[in-house]
Design a protein around this nucleic acid. Structure first.
Lengths: 195, 195
DNA sequence: TTATAATGACTGACCAGTCAGTCATTATGG
DNA sequence: CCATAATGACTGACTGGTCAGTCATTATAA
C-alpha cells in the first residue's frame, strides 16, 4: 500500500511518457495511459490532479534524469571538448533507450505545450534554463582554458542543445544517424574552437 | 462548384495559419477558423475535405512562399557565405511578419502532427527535403569555390536549418534575438569555413 | 428562374474528470 | 487464535461538455 504507492505512480509516469511521447498531449487519452499502466482511470486521479499534472510530472522526471546523467559526464576527467562529446554520447544512448517516446523530448513541442497549458510553463522553463546553464559552464571552462575561442557561452550552449535535439528528432524519421552525429558535432566544435 | 473563389480560400488559409499557429492542430477548432475568416463553418467544407486538409493547405502555402523567397536570395550575386547570410536575413524578416503564427513553423511540431496524421506526412516531407536540398546546393557551391571546407553539404544544410529554426522558436519566447542571431550564424559559419 | 455559394443548427463520437462502491490488507479486542 | 472492524487503494460506469463534419435551408448572381 504505502510501498506500492511509489510503484503505481511510477507506472503511471512511465505509461504517460509513452503515450504523450507517441501521440502528443491532446491525442493521448487518460484512458489510454491507465490502460498501458494496467490500472483503472480513477486511480490516476488519486495520484495526479488532472491531465496536465500527469504531463508535468513526466516532464520533470525526464528532465531530472537527463540532467543527472549530464552532470555525471561533466564531472568525469577530460577537456571541455571531451566533456561535450561525452554529453552528446550520453544523450544519444539515453535517447535510444526511450526511442518510442522520443517526440516527448521535442523541446519546441514542450515549449508549445507549455504555452497552451500555462501551468506547465513555470515547471518546464526553469529546467530548460538550467540545462542551458550546465552546458554553458562547460563551454566557459573551455574558453578559460583557451580551448575554445572567446564567445558567449550561453549562445554556444544554445547551439549545442539545438543541434543535439534536431539530430535526435531526425533520427526518429530516418535511420542514418550514427555517422551523421559525428559530422554534426564536428561542425559545432569547429565553430567554437580556437584556430 | 466550378470556378472556386480564390479569395475565400485564401481567407480560410490565412485564418488557419493564425489559429493553427497559435494553438496547434488539436486545439484550433474549425469553428474558430471560420470565425476568424468571417465565414460560416459549412463554407470551409466547400473548399477543404476536412480539418487535416486545411492544415495541409496552409502548410504547403507557407513552405512555398518561404522557398520562393529563399531561391530569390540564392540567385542574387555574391559568395556562398553571403547567400547564406541573405537567406538567414530573409527568413528573419519573414518570421517577424507572421510573428503570431510562428509556432506553425515548428518543424518538429509538423513532424509530430504528421506522424499522427499520416496524410500530412506525404505533403510536408517532400517540402522539407527540398528545402534542405536548396541550402545544400549553396553549401556545395561554397565547397567548390574553396570557401567552405570539405564536408557533407546535406548535413551542413541540416545544421543550418536546425539552428535557424531553433533561433526563431527562441525568439518567440524571449525577446533578445537580434544580436544573438549574428552570434549563432558566426558559430555555424566558423564551423564550415576553410581555415 | 435556375445554378451555385453560403449558412448555421444539429448530430454523434469522444473524452476529462467524478464518485459510489469493492476488496485485500491491517488493526483491534475478546 | 479467531472474528470483526477499519482502512484506503483501486475500480469503472457515468456525466457534462466539446467539436468535426453534415445537410436542409437561404442568399446571391447570372
Amino acid at each position: 500500500m504505502k510501498i506500492q504507492d511509489n510503484r503505481t505512480e511510477n507506472r503511471i509516469l512511465k505509461a504517460a511518457l509513452k503515450q504523450f511521447g507517441s501521440k502528443g498531449f491532446d491525442r493521448a487519452t487518460v484512458d489510454s495511459i491507465a490502460r498501458v499502466a494496467g490500472i483503472a482511470k480513477g486511480t490516476i486521479y488519486l495520484y495526479f490532479k488532472n491531465k496536465e499534472a500527469i504531463y508535468a510530472g513526466a516532464c520533470v522526471q525526464q528532465f531530472d534524469r537527463l540532467m543527472e546523467g549530464m552532470t555525471a559526464e561533466i564531472s568525469a576527467a577530460g577537456s571541455a571538448e571531451q566533456k561535450l562529446t561525452g554529453i552528446a554520447q550520453y544523450l544519444s544512448s539515453y535517447i535510444v533507450k526511450i526511442r518510442s517516446s522520443l517526440p516527448f523530448f521535442d523541446i519546441e513541442n514542450i515549449h508549445l505545450t507549455a504555452q497552451t497549458l500555462k501551468s506547465l510553463h513555470s515547471v518546464v522553463m526553469p529546467k530548460m534554463i538550467k540545462m542551458n546553464r550546465i552546458i554553458a559552464e562547460v563551454i566557459s571552462l573551455g574558453i578559460k582554458d583557451r580551448e575554445f575561442r572567446e564567445l558567449d557561452p550561453q549562445i554556444a550552449a544554445f547551439c549545442f542543445i539545438s543541434l543535439m535535439r534536431a539530430m535526435f528528432m531526425n533520427m526518429m524519421f530516418k535511420f542514418d544517424t550514427a555517422e551523421n552525429a559525428d559530422d554534426i558535432m564536428r561542425i559545432f566544435l569547429c565553430g567554437i574552437k580556437r584556430r
